[in-house]
């Protein structure tokens, strides 16, 4: 009887989950002539665009993970401290609202913010020596820019989730720490943050998976800067170029698979280090 209930979902799972995953594997290990072993992968390793793209994505990810972890935890702790209910709710909503812009719209918003000609923070930009949009988006700044955009859109959701987790901590535990003379700072470091460990690991996993797929941000900046930001900046942009510029679906699939495997491997580090699957 359960079969009827799961039939439509199972069909979707097979067609859009399992089949594409298998198909990608087949494509990655074959070429027009048949089985190709690791040839497609070797071809990608030797592509002059590959390693720079790896470096670009990796530096963005490293920067983002650190900033995201530090400030999401800090802001969740702060919001949790606010004792007036409605102020807390307003603060959480304010932090959350840029999430509505996730994707292309957030990059469009930041195009304006990064252009000293119209930016509300043009004073800040010029004081850092950026007098035009093209100067702001020079290569060295890009990991920072992508980190800021990703944090702007994504932080709020995690602040709310961490806040929910903090509410789940038994207030007596915190009260006991306070009675023992622990201040806000010590309570946070000794009691609250250790209890958030799982959630932090979970956030890291989700951010790694999403961040490794960087595409729309460099693509839009590339369109807007007339190629000052290269169109092969990130790995997913290479996936796109392989498939549609070079017509090399096999190379494209191999690159997708590599990206997937690496991000799953990195994610599993956080899963095990963070004890994500441990029972409480």
């Amino acid at each position: 009887m359960g079969r009827v209930f799961i039939s439509l979902y199972t069909a979707l799972l097979v067609v859009f989950g399992l089949a594409p995953a298998l198909y990608a594997l087949v494509l990655a290990f074959t070429d027009e002539a048949g089985f190709a072993g690791f040839d497609n992968f070797i071809g990608i390793f030797n592509d002059y665009r590959f390693w720079p793209a790896v470096t670009n994505v990796a530096s963005f990810l490293a920067l983002w993970l650190v900033v995201q972890t530090v400030f999401v935890v800090l802001l969740a702790l702060i919001v949790h401290q606010i004792s007036v209910r409605w102020i807390g709710a307003v603060a959480r909503f304010v932090y959350y609202i840029p999430g509505a812009f996730a994707g292309a719209a957030s990059v469009m918003v930041w195009l304006f913010l990064l252009d000293p000609a119209v930016s509300p923070v043009s004073g800040l930009l010029t004081s850092m020596g950026f007098d035009s949009f093209v100067q702001t988006v020079e290569q060295g700044n890009l990991p920072w820019i992508f980190m800021i955009i990703a944090f702007w859109t994504g932080a709020g959701q995690w602040i709310v989730i961490m806040y929910g987790a903090l509410n789940g901590i038994n207030p007596e535990v915190i009260e006991a720490a306070r009675v023992d003379g622990a201040g806000i700072f010590h309570t946070a470091v000794k009691v609250q943050i250790p209890l958030l460990k799982k959630w932090i690991a979970y956030m890291a996993v989700m951010c790694l998976a999403a961040g490794a797929q960087l595409f729309v941000e460099p693509r839009v900046l590339s369109q807007a800067s007339k190629g000052v930001v290269p169109e092969d900046y990130s790995l997913n942009q290479l996936v796109y170029l392989y498939a549609f510029r070079q017509g090399d679906y096999h190379g494209s699939a191999a690159l997708s698979i590599m990206l997937l495997v690496v991000s799953l491997l990195l994610a599993s580090v956080f899963v095990f280090k963070g004890g994500l699957f441990d029972r409480d």
């Binding site: 199972t10 989950g17 995953a21 198909y23 990608a24 797929q213 595409f215 997708s256 997937l260 991000s263």
Partner: peptide, 26 residues
């Protein structure tokens, strides 16, 4: 049931951009 649940959990971890090319070819 257990197989479907496990598969769902694993597939949930795959970022949706990763499979766009094979889905396109399908």
């Amino acid at each position: 049931r257990a197989l479907l649940l496990t598969t769902t959990l694993v597939v949930m971890l795959i970022p949706n951009t990763a499979l766009v090319l094979p889905v396109f070819l399908e």
